[in-house]
Design a protein around this nucleic acid. Structure first.
Lengths: 222, 222
DNA sequence: ACGTTAATTAACTATCTAGTTCGTAAAACG
DNA sequence: CGTTTTACGAACTAGATAGTTAATTAACGT
């Protein structure tokens, strides 16, 4: 198992002793750790490597986070809460149901496209059977807002007669997420098997339209 | 990071010296390794643990496979070729296009439902950016048969006027796989966030129908 | 029966890795 | 300006882990 060269993350100027800044040091550790966990998995990521990549020592990681596992959990929590922040900015309430759901699908697509480290962290967490996300109360019921939104759109769509299919908000969210997630997460094996890098820019627009049309077509019924 | 108790895999009767059987020993190592890699990831899986779980010694793993990485590759290749074998048994040629594509979607669903270790291995391989699957010629172009099948169904469907949407075989395969893969692979994080275990038996039939309807609806157009 | 070879076992090693100890110096504070 | 607190760094340790060496034993043909 060879390792890719990792990008240098240090915002700390080279040479001379490190200036004291607890906030920045903590934030840097988190950023580098996110990249390393996403790149190598939980067990594959090395505490020494994380330290080295930011011109500090391992000691600081234990000073701020206590253990490798707690660092990993902190990374997960940070990543998930950034996602929540994005989702809250979505305003599709004033749109007609069909356009609302299409827009939501496309925004979800954009979000997955833009946060690839996050996708990998989710994949890693699933390999470990979600044991950390399950522990964290910060992360429980983080999904509620999206579900509310989808529920309202579905109701409006059935009222207007646009949507026929019986499916609840969770199912619809799953359908959209599956498409967006898979495209990014399975890029490499899919590319090897089918000779197309579905996560490459040249396929972006087509697949973005596709997830919207798929969702709308499904809800309209056959 | 706590580890679940692993299921005992030994077909070798306990007690006394091990009977000599190269084929069986090799096969047992592969089976146990598949389970361990799927459970802990590449770096997280332990060579000692694999050996211990089947009442043999680590030396056997090196005797038959040479290194941890080569063992992992062997596991991947075995898993993928089993998949190919299943896909070849699919006979949807005699069905009408709409039923053919729906059946294919549902068979894909069943397959993902039944091979969860395989799904995890794929996820792990993607975390490592597909570096092993890329090396293996056994695995390259393993996807061709499915694509042929889908292509023929799509052509027939457009000829009959059932399908309107312009999408190629790879896109359609991706759409179906995404749904089926996500349901199994992201079971844990999705469950934690939305309070529903989408991979649980009680949701199986509904979601199975859903992937068929989704694909058909998409191809029929809005 | 018996010698050859393939399969198996036990014990060992070099290296890596998470986590620690202890010391220091910059900021904060009076 | 003296003291305390907070941030940082170098070197160390105990245990784990991939990989090896070499002896041993079961199978199998002759």
């Amino acid at each position: 198992m060879t390792s890719q060269p990792a990008t240098q993350h240090a915002t700390q100027p080279a040479g001379g002793p490190r200036r004291r800044d607890a906030e920045r040091t903590r934030a840097e550790i988190l950023a580098v750790a996110q990249s390393e966990f996403a790149r190598h998995g939980y067990a594959g990521a090395r505490v020494d490597e994380i330290a080295e990549l930011m011109r500090t020592t391992k000691r600081m990681i234990y000073y701020y986070f206590g253990s490798k596992e707690r660092l990993y959990i902190a990374v997960l929590e940070k990543a998930y809460s950034e996602v929540r922040a994005v989702e809250r900015t979505v305003d599709v309430e004033h749109l007609a149901p069909v356009e609302a759901i299409r827009t939501l699908a496309e925004l979800t697509f954009d979000h997955h496209d833009a946060h690839r480290d996050f996708i990998k962290l989710v994949a890693i967490e699933n390999i470990h059977q979600g044991e950390h996300i399950r522990k964290s109360e910060v992360l429980a019921n983080l999904g509620a807002p999206v579900l509310d939104l989808i529920s309202r759109i579905l109701e409006a769509g059935r009222a207007s007669g646009d949507f026929v299919t019986e499916a609840d908000a969770i199912d619809v969210h799953m359908m959209i997420s599956a498409f967006c997630f898979f495209r990014v997460a399975n890029q490499h094996t899919f590319g090897a098997l089918f000779g197309r890098d579905m996560a490459a820019p040249e396929h972006r627009e087509r697949l973005r339209r596709m997830v919207g049309e798929m969702t709308v077509a499904y809800l309209r019924g056959a």
